Amino acid sequence: MGTQIVAASALSGVNIVFLAALTVVWVRNYRTFRTALVLGLIAFAVVMLVENAFALYFFFTMQSLYSGDPHVQQAVLILRGLQLVALAFLTYVTMR
């Protein structure tokens, strides 16, 4: 497995941690407020959790998809990094 895919896998793992924290907070808020907006946030977090879990699965089981082209590996790493930045901001403002 290439270095960039290992880094992308690590970023997916961190994204999962952020999303799990967000889900816990939003479920707690939904129990209090019962609004459609908070329910939408929970649905967003669950879908993103599933997407990141599948990404990790594919990184480790289907390495041939990413190993052939270094440009693809770089693109995957950049996309995981951008997702991490977005989730870090969202987690920061949610936890405040």
Rank of each mutant, 00 (worst) to 15 (best):
A53E: 09
V50H: 03
L49A: 13
T32L: 03
N52P: 07
F54P: 01
L56S: 05
T35N: 11
V27W: 06
R31K: 09
A53I: 14
A53S: 15
L49P: 01
V25C: 03
R28H: 12
A53P: 03
F54S: 08
V50E: 08
A55N: 13
A45C: 15
I42F: 03
R28E: 15
L37V: 10
T35Y: 13
L56A: 09
V47S: 10
F54T: 09
G40T: 00
R28I: 10
F54L: 15
V25T: 08
R34C: 02
N29L: 10
A45F: 03
Y30E: 09
L56F: 01
R28D: 13
I42V: 13
L37H: 11
R34S: 14
V47A: 14
Y30K: 08
A36S: 12
W26P: 01
W26I: 00
M48H: 15
V25H: 03
A45Y: 02
L49Q: 12
N52C: 08
L49W: 07
G40W: 01
V50F: 09
G40D: 13
V24Q: 10
E51Q: 12
V24T: 12
A36D: 13
L41F: 04
V47Q: 06
V38N: 02
Y30L: 08
T35K: 02
L41K: 11
F44Y: 05
R31H: 11
V24I: 14
V50Y: 12
Y30C: 11
A45E: 12
V46H: 02
Y30F: 14
E51S: 15
V46S: 00
M48W: 11
W26E: 12
L56K: 04
N29W: 03
R34W: 01
A43N: 02
L39V: 03
V50A: 14
V27M: 09
V27G: 02
A36R: 07
A45L: 05
I42E: 04
V24C: 05
G40N: 14
I42R: 06
R28G: 07
R34K: 14
V38H: 04
W26Y: 15
V24L: 10
L49I: 14
V47E: 02
A36P: 00
L37M: 08
A43I: 05
A53L: 15
L39Y: 05
T32P: 00
L39P: 01
L41N: 07
N52K: 07
L49T: 11
F33P: 00
T35H: 01
F54C: 09
A45G: 15
V47F: 07
A43P: 00
E51R: 11
N52M: 13
V46K: 08
V38A: 02
